[in-house]
Design a protein around this nucleic acid. Structure first.
Lengths: 152, 152
DNA sequence: ATCCTAAATGCAAATGAGTTGCATTTGCAA
DNA sequence: TTGCAAATGCAACTCATTTGCATTTAGGAT
């Protein structure tokens, strides 16, 4: 998993622990909690003896560098982390199994930040409240294929 | 605050504690944490002797009845509760002071759920992933008037 | 109005995610 | 190769939230 030499982002020390967290998040298909990352590391290398606190410290350091992004989803009670691939992605979250399906289509894509600040469809929001919008987060909720079957 | 007789939603026992939580949430202008609700109760009636656990249990009961909704926002680390007024509302969240400005305009309002499930702009999402969308949550991030001033 | 019982509450202890202090180890630049 | 700032392990801690249990109370039945 971590054998092939790979170029890591610069600017921080690359310890074995950080490489492990990097590899897991970088290959993840959906956001993961610290506990999930830790479990995945143990699964890959059952003999490692990590401190959970190290995972949190690594995630905090990565976040500070802009390498990972932190979010929470309705229904989970823990913070989730994902490697910042600089793709504008939202998620469709299954209300039953909590699976997160990445959605690369954004219905707000035509409303750029400049529009958000006073012109276009956002004018009403921006003007009425004197609020400068710099980003947004959209989550879709519903049921994934498997859970939809069971539900009815 | 709680003097004037008011009709409470039916279906549950209306204890003094529940009435207090109801009044606070019902008059709140933005989502509140359990701790904030508790603090507000103490502020209104310094002599009450509530158990914090009671607040949590009341909120859980209210949520189960559909009276309150639970959400989390980026930046806060605690769960927020709001009385369900059955208005489709999103929030603009200040990244600095965490103030939440309600936004009653929804850029997705023209995309009804039926559209979401296979036609219209959502077709791509729904079809590609076989995901049934039943709801969505949009959060705007940025800076409120006061914080924007300080920021530059 | 009074009784009765299931439901709600107070209290204190437990849980669990996340954080922190400190001694030890380790990248990595010189 | 060496030195040191930064990273880690470990254990203790914080803080939001939950839970068990004894006591109280809302509100329907009498």
């Amino acid at each position: 998993m971590a054998e092939n030499r790979q170029s890591y982002p610069e600017g921080i020390k690359w310890t074995k622990q950080r490489k492990d967290v990097f590899h897991i998040l970088n290959n993840a298909t959906e956001p993961m909690s610290a506990a999930q990352i830790y479990a995945q590391i143990l699964k890959n290398e059952p003999d490692v003896n990590y401190a959970v606190s190290t995972i949190y410290r690594i995630l905090a350091a990565f976040e500070e560098q802009g390498f990972v992004e932190k979010t929470t989803f309705m229904g989970d009670d823990t913070v989730m982390y994902e490697w910042n691939k600089h793709e504008h992605t939202h998620y469709a979250v299954c209300l039953n199994c909590h699976k997160k399906v990445p959605v690369h289509v954004c219905p707000l894509e035509h409303f750029d930040h400049h529009d958000m600040m006073g012109r276009g469809p956002w004018a009403e929001i921006a003007k009425s409240d004197d609020f400068v919008v710099t980003a947004h987060k959209l989550e879709l909720y519903g049921y994934c294929k498997e859970c939809e079957k069971i539900r009815k």
